[in-house]
């Protein structure tokens, strides 16, 4: 596990590189895409465990904080979700440079899954995307964020202790998993649990064959759901196993 800063001066991103512990799945790398900042505090632990686990499977992994979140440069109030896909792109370039892989898989939780699909649409070096508990409908999610608001100040809503600019909410409203999925040509796997608020909607899309992807239902606790104020979610063991299987089964 090697923590470091990367990216342009003034926009440094904090990342943790899990190098593959032995040569094996040559050319395989994974970049983890976090959800919105208030959910990312809880997913950090799941990503760490998964990163350690995949590195033992000889897969290079990089997890990182978007600009203005976690330990990356920038004040929380400067968070702009329109910049998150660019940060994922920077992380992909970094992983390729430090590990020597020439293509990567992306794993994204919640809104991170939609950012990952957006990046996959734009780049040719993304082999596949794993969407873990993805947000299905931006408008529904946006309404959830508005309901969870605990305060407002200068064009920002305080959700779970972190600011979300109104501008970000407008962008979230436009997002749709179905559209994002249909715009990519790489392989996509979806992991969802019945505890997820939008599980029913996802199920009906799958029943109607409207989604082109692998799908696995897990009973795990939700990795993004913080346990009260402390912000640490339980370990999603079943989902971790599925991801490991999908990534190591690949040719």
């Amino acid at each position: 596990m090697l923590p470091f800063f990367f990216g342009a001066t003034g926009r440094e991103l904090y990342g943790v590189y899990h190098p593959a512990v032995a040569v094996g799945h040559a050319g395989r790398g994974v970049v983890f895409c976090s959800p919105l900042a208030h959910e990312a505090i809880a997913t950090q632990w799941a990503y760490r465990i998964l990163g350690e686990s995949l590195s033992r499977e000889r897969i290079h992994c990089l997890r990182f904080d978007y600009r203005a979140t976690g330990d990356s440069a920038g004040d929380s109030r400067e968070t702009r979700i329109s910049e998150h896909p660019r940060d994922i792109g920077t992380a992909i370039d970094e992983l390729k440079a430090i590990s020597g892989v020439d293509a990567v898989h992306l794993i994204g939780i919640r809104l991170g899954a939609l950012f990952a699909l957006d990046v996959a649409r734009q780049r040719t070096d993304v082999q596949g995307v794993i969407a873990w508990e993805p947000i299905i409908d931006g408008t529904t999610y946006c309404n959830e964020l508005i309901e969870a608001t605990i305060g407002e100040h200068a064009g920002c809503r305080n959700v779970g202790g972190l600011p979300i600019a109104d501008e970000n909410l407008h962008q979230i409203r436009e997002l749709s998993f179905e559209c994002a999925l249909n715009a990519v040509s790489c392989e996509v796997g979806v992991i969802a649990s019945p505890h997820q608020p939008e599980f029913g909607r996802l199920g009906s899309l799958l029943d109607q064959d409207q989604l082109r992807c692998r799908f696995e239902v897990v009973q795990d606790a939700l990795p993004w759901k913080a346990d009260s104020e402390v912000g640490v979610a339980p370990l999603p063991a079943q989902a971790t196993r599925v991801i490991k299987r999908w990534l190591t089964d690949l040719g």
Binding site: I41, W45, G70, D71, D75, L162, V230, G231
Partner: peptide, 19 residues
Amino acid sequence: NAGVVRKSGPNNLNSFLAR
């Protein structure tokens, strides 16, 4: 660290104070 929350702190409190 506050409990088992990573070094950036709950709601990024630790990063905020450090800066």
